[in-house]
Design a protein around this nucleic acid. Structure first.
Lengths: 212, 212
DNA sequence: CCAATTCTGTAGCAATCGATAAATAAAGCG
DNA sequence: CGCTTTATTTATCGATTGCTACAGAATTGG
């Protein structure tokens, strides 16, 4: 019986096997990109955090930008899982939004992680030669808005949100607030402060959907 | 009669006079920092935009960080003038906030300028060695919150805002939204979309102050 | 065993980073 | 005029950037 790989049950592989845990190295890279942003993270920052040398990084991840892309994917899958779950599982659209926003209020200032959201912070400005990275981030943020809008449309279908509600406008409003919360988190805001902001935004819900 | 200097009516000066317009060079530097952020703006970006060589830049502005500090001051004085005026001159705190936010909705996507607010965007993440620059930005953002809170307190004193209103919490809420609007501006939001977000936030005002 | 393949460490690539030394030019002052 | 002071241009500085050539090590397949 063949020895089972710790990392993955992949194909047998031909040449010299990789001597490091690719997934763990990617997690380390994600953390550094999240903390410092794309451009301010140097290759030596990355190799240091990942515990490997540059040639190993390039062999496994191709280049800095591709590594960032993978790190962003990992971020969405791991850090995005819980908010997405909360968004989907709420009884109504309003309850879903409240649960998701309250979660972020705590998560953005979790001392175990870099503050704020990587998708908002890691590449918001930068040099012209890294435009493609910023484009990737913009695309990711836009898909997040769309996900929120879809939840509101679901609420309209289900009947817990009035027919006249503007799903995209509402999703944009709450997204904008969430994005601001990432800035606040970097400025040292507390969970309590972020929660107060969330509750203020949720108080606007009924007015936005048209209820009077 | 002495020839009047174009730039300033300063002291006579001793050695060789500066051959460039310091104020114009600073404006150019501000624009580049605003567009690309602190770290992504290289010295050659700066000298190119300012139309001078590196030694002239260092003679006039000391170092990159000091130049950024001056650029940030200039930004606040120029770009901050109109929103501050609107904040001060509104009949009530609510009207002041609405006017300021509506102005920003247009200003953040003014095609004549870099999108969004320099104070929010130019140094939100980065390398550890530039922590002091981020600290300066955080300090600037905090003073902006305080300015909004002061306007609300003025409204409480004047009577247009109920006594029980939490000025800091309200100021934080609207600041958070404004900061998110800078992200939205970088993502290509339109004035119309930003205005819709502003109106949604303003609809929350009466609920926040305690009115029912 | 050998050959083919893939990964790893060392060492270094050209380019750029922020910043400056040195020589010269242009002003005021005496 | 010379002396002092300051700004200018040119030509770098050492350090770091993202990235890679190269040689050797470790694996599979034959």
């Amino acid at each position: 019986m063949a020895v089972r790989r710790v990392t993955k049950a992949q194909k047998p592989a031909k040449g010299r096997p990789r001597s490091f845990d690719r997934a763990a190295a990617l997690r380390a890279a994600m953390e550094v990109f999240w903390q410092r942003g794309y451009e301010a993270t140097s290759l030596s920052d990355l190799t240091g955090a990942m515990g490997i040398n540059a040639p190993s990084l390039y062999a496994a991840f191709d280049c800095k930008e591709a590594l960032f892309g993978e790190a962003l994917d990992l971020y969405q899958v791991t850090e995005g899982a819980e908010p997405q779950r909360l968004l989907a599982q709420g009884r109504t659209a309003k309850e879903s939004f409240a649960a998701m926003l309250r979660f972020h209020a705590g998560d953005y200032v979790n001392p175990q992680k870099p503050p704020g959201c990587m998708v908002v912070l890691a590449a918001i400005v930068g040099a012209p030669e890294n435009k493609s990275v910023r484009g990737l981030m913009t695309k990711t943020r836009r898909s997040a808005v769309e996900m929120l809008a879809a939840r509101i449309r679901r609420g309209i279908t289900a009947g817990d949100v009035p027919k006249g509600a503007d799903a995209v406008a509402m999703a944009t409003f709450y997204t904008t607030l969430m994005q601001g919360m990432s800035i606040q988190a970097r400025d040292g805001a507390t969970k309590k402060q972020l929660l107060a902001t969330v509750e203020a935004a949720m108080a606007a819900w009924d007015g936005m959907v048209g209820k009077r």
